[in-house]
Design a protein around this nucleic acid. Structure first.
Lengths: 199, 199
DNA sequence: GATGAAAATTGCTGGTCACGCAATATTGCC
DNA sequence: GGCAATATTGCGTGACCAGCAATTTTCATC
């Protein structure tokens, strides 16, 4: 990657990070685009060259995570079953497996899912990631994502599982780690939803 | 329903409808809030009492549809299995079963899914509807939606199926009816996704 | 019907945002 | 070191969204 692109990438990251941090600290409506730009040392106009809204800046990290999942799927061994590969990739990207989730990350996720003006962009980011995931899935199983719904369905189902798992994770009191929830959700979907889990 | 609420409901519908119609005709950026308000014969300020953005107004009808699905599920006979009931309800709300989908509706859906500034609100509407659907599901099977992920998962899966079906439906050329696609998507999810459909 | 309380509509306004455009500064290549 | 490509910036504009207070409309009660 050229120096030029590297620097662009860095400013982008810095802006996104600053947006999240400030919004978590003060609440989103107490953060002006101007503040975020100042934090990074860049003009407000430049902020808008990178992101078309505060919400988009905040959601950018989420989008990157999603893209990483699609990329990671491509890197899984070819002899692994599709669902195994997906489960592995999704779970391993769901953060650390230990009992203490990073409080900053938690706060960021809570921000994205609770603040109405960010929710939309958050979901758009999820959808974009799912879309790339669908392509990766189609490649892996040799299907045509344009013609066949299956890759899209699997991707969307993974997104749905993630979404529900996160939701319950944020609600959990006392806090529980995310990964078991996600694994559980994926398993339920894999089992076919018509049968409620035995219990 | 009192006359008061009825009138509010009517203006709300009128605003939403006008927003969609104008945006489809001219393109969203050529429609001002002022225009929508004028179309309905109401002040621009009043528009914002009903909706906090053009995008929200456009998505309102989609939200209503989703809510109807949740309501319809509650009305299904109790001896029907959950998945049967859901399939029936979802499919029967997916528009007419014939070959010629209402072009206005098609245009509206295409608008909501293609225009970036509406996508977010569109997805928020879907999420809100899914959330209500989850509650209805929990009631039906006697589960606690707060504690158990299953209702949320089923609701999210239905949303995912709908989303993917719509996507393929919009892409289809020559146009195909939506309902078979939706039924297919739901069936695939019901069957458990790890097994690609035989073919 | 008339009346008064509750609620909806409206105009005004301030703060913010997002973007087009043109000028300027920076970068990377030769 | 100079040049072309690209990034940053400042400025200006049009639009949006919400708070507030005033006005109009609705509805329940007499």
């Amino acid at each position: 990657m050229g120096l030029r692109e590297r620097k662009k990438w860095e400013t982008r990251q810095a802006l996104s990070w600053a947006a999240v941090r400030l919004a978590v600290e003060r609440g989103l409506n107490n953060v002006l685009v101007e503040d975020i730009a100042a934090e990074v040392g860049v003009s407000p106009r430049t902020f808008n060259n990178y992101f078309s809204s505060k919400a988009e800046a905040i959601s950018a990290r989420h989008l990157d995570r999603g893209r990483q999942i699609a990329a990671a799927l491509r890197a899984r061994p070819a002899d692994e079953s599709l669902w195994e590969a997906i489960t592995h990739v999704a779970v391993s990207h769901a953060g650390p497996d230990d009992q203490r989730p990073d409080p900053e990350w938690t706060a960021g996720v809570r921000l994205m899912t609770s603040e109405p003006s960010v929710q939309g962009e958050f979901m758009k980011a999820s959808a974009a990631a799912e879309s790339e995931l669908a392509v990766a899935i189609a490649e892996r199983i040799g299907a045509d994502a344009e013609r066949d719904m299956y890759p899209g369905l699997v991707a969307a189902a993974v997104g749905a599982a993630t979404q529900v798992a996160i939701q319950h994770w944020l609600r959990s009191d006392p806090p529980v780690p995310l990964t078991p929830l996600l694994r559980d959700a994926l398993d339920q979907i894999a089992a076919g939803l018509p049968q409620p889990p035995t219990g």
